[in-house]
Design a protein around this nucleic acid. Structure first.
Lengths: 255, 255
DNA sequence: AAATGGCATTTCAAATAATGAAACACAACG
DNA sequence: CGTTGTGTTTCATTATTTGAAATGCCATTT
C-alpha cells in the first residue's frame, strides 16, 4: 500500500463536513503532517481536479472539492443498474404519497443510501448519498441486516458496538436480535426517530431474480405520518413499489 | 507534487470508458507501470473506497469504481448553489417542452455540464455530468465562450486547436470569432449536430446578481424540433426559464 | 499427469521520491 | 516597523516506493 495516496485521499474527507473550503493551514493544524507535505498533497489533488484552488486574496488561499468528483460520482451512479431500475418506481411512489423515498444497499459491513427522491414537504431529512451508515440504525439498514445470512449476521453483531445516535437507538444486542427476527417475520422494518428526532421510516425488501434481498426501499416522513387511514395507504403503495422493482429485476413472486 | 498520487488518481480515468471492470493485468498492460506498483496503487485506492475489488474467481480479480466516489460526487453536486437554484426550473421546463435540458458552466478553459434533466423521448444524448468539454463545440459551451471577457476569449482562441468531432464542427478560427460575435448580438446560441449527429441544441444565458453570465441553459433534441410553431414555443419557454433562474440568482433584468 | 502459461501476490535489496526544518516572500496586524 | 500570519521553495536526509525475481495458485495444454 502507498501511504501518500491514502493520506491524500483521506484529506478529501476533511471537506465533507460543514466547512466547504479549507486552507493549507487549516489542514495542517488538523492533521499531523508537516506544512510542505500537506502543500504537495493538495497540489497533487488539485492537479487531478479532485480539489479546486480558490484565491480569496494573496495569502488567503483555500481549497474545495473539485468537479472531477462530480464526474466520477455520476459514473458510479449511472452504473448502479439497481438504481436505474428503481428510480422510476421511486419517483412514482413519491408522487403518490409525497414523502421522501430512499434506496439502500449493503456495502460491506455497512449500509449505503444510493438514491434519494425528495418530497415537496418541508421536513428536511439529511441523508448523504453514497455514505455508509451502521446497519443497526434506521429501518432501511436494519431490514438489510435482517435479511443477511444467519452466520454473517451473527458475526457482525458480535463484532459491532452499538452507539446511540438518539434516545431511540437500539443499544442492546439481544434487543437487536429480536428486532431483526421481527423484521424477517413481518417482511418489513420500521424505525422511529433514530437518525433525526421526529422522523419515521418504513422499509420494504427489494429482491432480484435469485430471490435474494438486494436493497431496501425506504419511506421517510414526519412521525405523524402514521395517521389512521394514511398509514395503510402508505404501506400498500410502498410495498407495491418495492414489489414492482423486484419484478423488474426478474424476481418471480411466490409464497 | 506527489507522483504516486497522480498516478493513482489517473488510474481512475481508465474506469470511465466502456469497461466498467478492469483487472490488475489489464491496467498493467495499458500503463507503463510495473505490476507490483499497479497492485499497490489499486490496493490503496480500494482501501479508501475509491475502487471496489470484485472476485469473479480466485485468479480473475477485477476492480470497479467505488461508492466513495458517489459520496464525494454527491457532496459536490449539493454544494453547487447554481445547480440547486436551477434544478426546479429545469424540471418545469422539461415538463413543458419534453426535451433534454442541460446546465453548463465554465470550468477553467473548458465547459462542464453540471446537471441534466432527461426527457421522455427516446433520443439518447450521452452527456457525462462533471466532465469537461471544449468551449467551441455545442451551443452551451459556445454561449459561455461568447460571454467571456474579450481578452481571455482571445487568449483561448489563439492557444486552442479546433479538432472536428463531426462534419458540423467549426474548425476555422475566424469562423468561430464571427459565430461568437453573433451569439453576443443575438443573446442565444444554436448548434446543429456537432456532438451527436441529428441532435440540435439551443442555449440561453443565466446571469447572477452582478449581471455576469454564470451558466448556459441548454435544450437538446432531435434536429427536427425546429418545426414551425414548435420552434418559437421552445424558444419562448426556454428563454423564460433561463430568465427565471437569473432572477432567482438576484439578477435585476434591465436593458 | 506433468507441463505450461496466466493470474495475483510477496519478498527484498536498490534507488528513487517523499519528507520536514529552515528559509523566503509577501501581506496584514498591532 | 517589528511581529505574526499566510503560502511557497529549497535541499540534505530519510524513509518509502520501486521492480526483478520468486511464490503460490489455478486452468489449460501437452
Amino acid at each position: 500500500m502507498n501511504q501518500s495516496i491514502i493520506n491524500a485521499l483521506n484529506l478529501l474527507d476533511l471537506f465533507t463536513g460543514d466547512q466547504h473550503e479549507l486552507s493549507l493551514s487549516d489542514i495542517h493544524k488538523v492533521t499531523d503532517m508537516s506544512k510542505p507535505t500537506v502543500y504537495r498533497l493538495l497540489a497533487s489533488l488539485e492537479f487531478c481536479g479532485f480539489l479546486i484552488k480558490v484565491k480569496h486574496s494573496d495569502q488567503d488561499i483555500r481549497y474545495r472539492l473539485g468537479l472531477k468528483l462530480l464526474e466520477l460520482g455520476n459514473i458510479v451512479s449511472e452504473r448502479l443498474e439497481l438504481r436505474r431500475v428503481a428510480l422510476p418506481h421511486m419517483e412514482k411512489l413519491r408522487d403518490e404519497i409525497n414523502e421522501i423515498v430512499h434506496l439502500v444497499i449493503i456495502n460491506g459491513d455497512q449500509a449505503t443510501y444510493i438514491e434519494k427522491v425528495e418530497s415537496s414537504q418541508p421536513i428536511r431529512l439529511y441523508t448523504r448519498i453514497g455514505r455508509g451508515s451502521p446497519l443497526y440504525i434506521g429501518s432501511g439498514p436494519r431490514l438489510l441486516f435482517a435479511y443477511m445470512s444467519r452466520e454473517t449476521r451473527e458475526n457482525l453483531i458480535q463484532k459491532m458496538k452499538l452507539y446511540p445516535l438518539t434516545n431511540n437507538t437500539i443499544t442492546d444486542k439481544t434487543e437487536l436480535r429480536t428486532e431483526l427476527e421481527n423484521i424477517r417475520r413481518q417482511g418489513y422494518a420500521i424505525s422511529y426517530g433514530e437518525q433525526n428526532m421526529g422522523t419515521t421510516g418504513i422499509s420494504f425488501p427489494v429482491k432480484d431474480f435469485t430471490g435474494e434481498v438486494v436493497a431496501a426501499l425506504t419511506i421517510n416522513g414526519p412521525s405523524s405520518f402514521f395517521e389512521p387511514g394514511r398509514e395503510s395507504f402508505i404501506r400498500e403503495k410502498s410495498k407495491g413499489a418495492a414489489d414492482h422493482i423486484s419484478q423488474d429485476l426478474g424476481y418471480k413472486n411466490q409464497e
